[in-house]
């Protein structure tokens, strides 16, 4: 008798726990519900990668190594140099590169910034950053 009860409890416990583990993330991922601190939706690293931009400077199509042009050692460069976080910082870096390359430089930037879902293109080489 007790063995039968224990078996039923075991089955119920397993099925309830397995159903929760396998199905509860759907509440957040498929139906847009809130996790409420209870449901684990396994949406990993969503916020990581936001707040940093990928930037590629070039002068008439030739890629510029900003570390080499500005004489900065990459291993010792401060974070504010290494990490460009928005358009304003990219433009400021572009102006420094214009100054270092001298008159007639045509520095353009391909700037893509990290967001929750990936990278968004902010500057697409359409503008000569030395023009102003």
């Amino acid at each position: 008798m007790m063995a039968a009860v224990r078996r039923r409890l075991r089955w119920f416990g397993f099925l309830a726990a397995a159903a929760w583990m396998l199905l509860s993330p759907a509440w957040v991922q498929l139906f847009g519900g809130s996790s409420g601190g209870v449901v684990r939706a396994w949406q990993m690293f969503h916020l990581r990668g936001a707040g940093i931009c990928s930037v590629r400077f070039d002068d008439r199509g030739e890629r510029i190594d900003r570390y080499a042009v500005l004489g900065v050692d990459r291993a010792r460069a401060p974070a504010r140099f290494r990490r460009i976080g928005d358009e304003e910082q990219a433009r400021a870096m572009g102006r420094r590169l214009c100054g270092a390359r001298g008159p007639g430089a045509d520095v353009r930037a391909l700037l893509r910034c990290g967001e929750r879902r990936g990278l968004r293109t902010i500057l697409d080489r359409e503008e000569n950053l030395c023009a102003r």
């Binding site: 690293f45 990668g49 936001a50 707040g51 931009c53 990928s54 990936g118 990278l119």
Partner: peptide
């Protein structure tokens, strides 16, 4: 893009 952003970060 997302993987690249994480590797940049």
């Amino acid at each position: 893009d997302k993987l690249q952003a994480q590797l940049l970060f």
